[in-house]
Simulated scan of single mutants.
Amino acid sequence: MRHLAYASVWVVLLFGTQAWAQEAAAPESVKPGINEKFLDPELNVEEWVNRFEVESREVFAAKSEIVERMKLSPGDRVADIGTGTGLFVEPFSEAVGKDGWVYALDIAPKFVERVEKLAEIKSLNNVTPVLCGQDDIRLAPGSIDAAFICDVYHHFEYPDQSLASIHKAMKPGGKLVVIDFNRIPGESREWTLNHVRAGKEVFRAEIEKAGFRFVNEVEVPSFKENYFLQFERR
């Protein structure tokens, strides 16, 4: 019985230590709950199409300018991270051509399903929808030449982990484009100040810390609220 008691103590200590280690290692969200609505199994996709794909949305109105300034080449493999309703999937598919590939990633199963149907309807044979994790884009190492994060970086709950997975998936010298909202107290809309956790300088510093070199801020003449930053994977 004494041996059994000692064994039980060791089991408790072992599993207790493992549980503590797992808890200690678990990343902490920088904006808890910001993605809750997208993870809803009853997500109404059409509602988001009507919100995302309208002229009043700056990146929708500037879609052609954005794609042009991405400077994708035929044969490129690009990850559209946080693809949402798939706004950029078709133009990216055309830009990279039959020898390139588009990975359309999202954490929302309903958005991934929509992009899958969109690719089928439009015969986009170089598009793969991917259900990614909240802290991992789930792409193979060295599998992409470029990554595109449009109005999505502020939704990264675990930016360190997400950026690490992007860095791992990207080839050295690969291109990372981040478009997000200017958050300037006293100038930005109240919605932006409440919704977007930090400004451009903070986001840039996080991305550089993750192993990306800042290249430049690209001018998009029609932008009033957004900015376009370009980085290179070191």
Score class of each variant (00 low, 15 high):
residue 1 M to R: 03
residue 1 M to D: 00
residue 5 A to V: 15
residue 5 A to H: 12
residue 8 S to Q: 13
residue 9 V to F: 12
residue 9 V to W: 04
residue 9 V to E: 02
residue 11 V to T: 10
residue 15 F to G: 01
residue 16 G to N: 07
residue 19 A to F: 10
residue 20 W to S: 12
residue 20 W to E: 13
residue 25 A to F: 03
residue 26 A to Y: 01
residue 27 P to W: 02
residue 28 E to F: 12
residue 30 V to D: 00
residue 31 K to H: 07
residue 34 I to C: 05
residue 35 N to P: 06
residue 38 F to W: 14
residue 40 D to G: 15
residue 41 P to V: 11
residue 42 E to H: 13
residue 43 L to R: 15
residue 43 L to D: 15
residue 43 L to G: 15
residue 49 V to L: 04
residue 50 N to L: 14
residue 54 V to I: 15
residue 55 E to W: 01
residue 57 R to E: 13
residue 58 E to G: 06
residue 58 E to W: 01
residue 63 K to R: 15
residue 64 S to W: 11
residue 65 E to N: 06
residue 66 I to K: 10
residue 68 E to P: 04
residue 69 R to V: 08
residue 73 S to M: 14
residue 73 S to L: 15
residue 75 G to M: 05
residue 80 D to Y: 02
residue 90 E to M: 09
residue 91 P to R: 12
residue 95 A to K: 00
residue 95 A to P: 06
residue 97 G to S: 11
residue 98 K to V: 04
residue 99 D to A: 08
residue 99 D to W: 12
residue 100 G to L: 02
residue 103 Y to A: 00
residue 104 A to C: 14
residue 105 L to V: 00
residue 106 D to L: 03
residue 108 A to M: 13
residue 109 P to F: 08
residue 117 K to H: 07
residue 118 L to G: 05
residue 118 L to V: 05
residue 119 A to I: 00
residue 124 L to A: 05
residue 124 L to D: 01
residue 125 N to S: 10
residue 126 N to D: 07
residue 127 V to I: 11
residue 129 P to L: 04
residue 131 L to I: 05
residue 134 Q to D: 12
residue 139 L to P: 00
residue 142 G to P: 09
residue 143 S to K: 09
residue 145 D to A: 04
residue 149 I to E: 11
residue 149 I to H: 10
residue 151 D to R: 10
residue 158 Y to A: 07
residue 159 P to F: 05
residue 162 S to P: 03
residue 167 H to T: 06
residue 168 K to H: 03
residue 170 M to P: 07
residue 175 K to I: 02
residue 179 I to Y: 03
residue 184 I to E: 03
residue 185 P to S: 06
residue 187 E to V: 10
residue 188 S to K: 09
residue 189 R to N: 14
residue 189 R to Y: 12
residue 190 E to K: 13
residue 196 V to Q: 02
residue 199 G to E: 01
residue 202 V to I: 15
residue 203 F to C: 02
residue 204 R to E: 03
residue 205 A to T: 12
residue 205 A to N: 09
residue 209 K to A: 15
residue 209 K to G: 02
residue 211 G to Y: 05
residue 226 N to V: 08
residue 228 F to V: 09
residue 234 R to D: 09
